[in-house]
């Protein structure tokens, strides 16, 4: 049903695939609102979450998605596995394949590992984030959240703000957003930009885009991937790149704030904008991203295993 067996990067998806995934996700959004949030279609299929790097929302999201489709989900995380005893990825894969699974969801801290896994095995592989490379299902759920809000994506102005250098989310988002005709700019400190920025619209302060953007997409500061200190102080970062009450007040009325999570409160987004269990601002649609993420992953599993 999709052009390729596996989803390793946004580049693997044709525009028709993207639209098919979005349309199918709409049906799954309805199912997730029902009293019985489950359909039998993937009964008897087994899906493995193979996570070599920590994750809460992506792993849980795939797990909820698989379960709502009646597939069995096996969770495998490196920190509690034989990898700790020195088993290689290849041997881990052999073990998992011997258990007759139908699809593997992989996350790894090294770019390209997911591609390697896909080359080694015949069953479909979904990239749930590999190093600084890509995170295609995040991009799809981001697009889906935007589409659900704005209906038409073409021409929307998106500003992606923050740690662009280390962000696989940004890499996938830009490719997908541009594929769908959106107008993307990047707001980042120069130390957190790649050496070659040709082809990108770059701004050095969030104030440059705050009034014109339809979507402000905040990236998480990837402290775990930043080998050295990339920014002198949080105070200074706040001055140029963070969302606070004043800046939210200057956004367009229809504009929205997104973040792939987890949010570093007080760094990308201030505490007062984030709020308690919910943000006081209806423009903060981070929870819509999470809800949409389940529907998108249900659609992907359904379309790949079909």
């Amino acid at each position: 049903m999709l052009s390729k067996k596996s989803i390793l990067q946004v580049d693997d998806l044709e525009k028709e695939d993207v639209i098919k995934i979005m349309d199918t996700a709409d049906s799954f959004t309805d199912i997730s609102k029902r009293e019985i949030k489950k359909v039998p279609i993937l009964r008897g299929k087994a899906v493995v979450n193979l996570f070599f790097e920590s994750s809460t929302r992506t792993r849980t999201s795939f797990e909820v998605a698989a379960k709502r489709l009646s597939a069995d989900m096996i969770n495998f995380s490196a920190s509690t596995s034989s990898l700790k005893k020195g088993e290689s990825i290849m041997d881990t894969l052999r073990t998992i394949l011997a258990m007759q699974v139908d699809l593997v969801v992989v996350r790894h801290s090294d770019s390209g590992t997911v591609k390697m896994v896909d080359d080694l095995i015949d069953i479909p592989v979904i990239n749930a984030g590999d190093g600084k490379h890509q995170h295609p299902t995040q991009a799809l759920l981001d697009l889906y959240t935007i589409r659900s809000r704005f209906k038409e994506c073409r021409g929307l102005k998106v500003a992606i703000v923050g740690d662009f250098l280390n962000s696989r989310v940004a890499a996938s988002d830009i490719l997908l957003f541009e594929k769908m005709g959106m107008d993307v700019s990047i707001v980042a400190p120069s130390m957190l930009l790649p050496e070659d920025c040709s082809g990108f619209k770059i701004y050095s302060c969030i104030d440059d885009v705050i009034e014109s953007a339809d979507i402000i997409y905040m990236l998480r500061m990837q402290f775990e991937r930043q080998g050295r200190k990339f920014y002198p102080s949080i105070r200074e970062y706040n001055r140029f790149f963070s969302l606070n009450r004043d800046r939210v007040g200057r956004m367009k009325e229809s504009a929205v704030i997104m973040h792939p999570g987890p949010v570093n409160r007080g760094i990308e987004i201030s505490d007062e904008v984030m709020g308690g269990t919910r943000s006081p601002y209806s423009s903060v649609i981070i929870e819509d991203q999470v809800t949409g993420g389940v529907a998108i992953r249900m659609a992907i599993l359904y379309l790949i295993l079909g």
């Binding site: 049903m1 098919k20 349309d23 199918t24 049906s27 309805d30 199912i31 279609i41 295993l305 079909g306």
Partner: peptide
């Protein structure tokens, strides 16, 4: 009503696009 998610021939590659229930 769309019955795509309740079919018993899943995987037989004869399915049409899902429409909304």
């Amino acid at each position: 009503l769309d019955i795509s998610f309740y079919r018993d021939d899943f995987g037989m590659k004869i399915k049409s696009d899902v429409e909304k229930t």
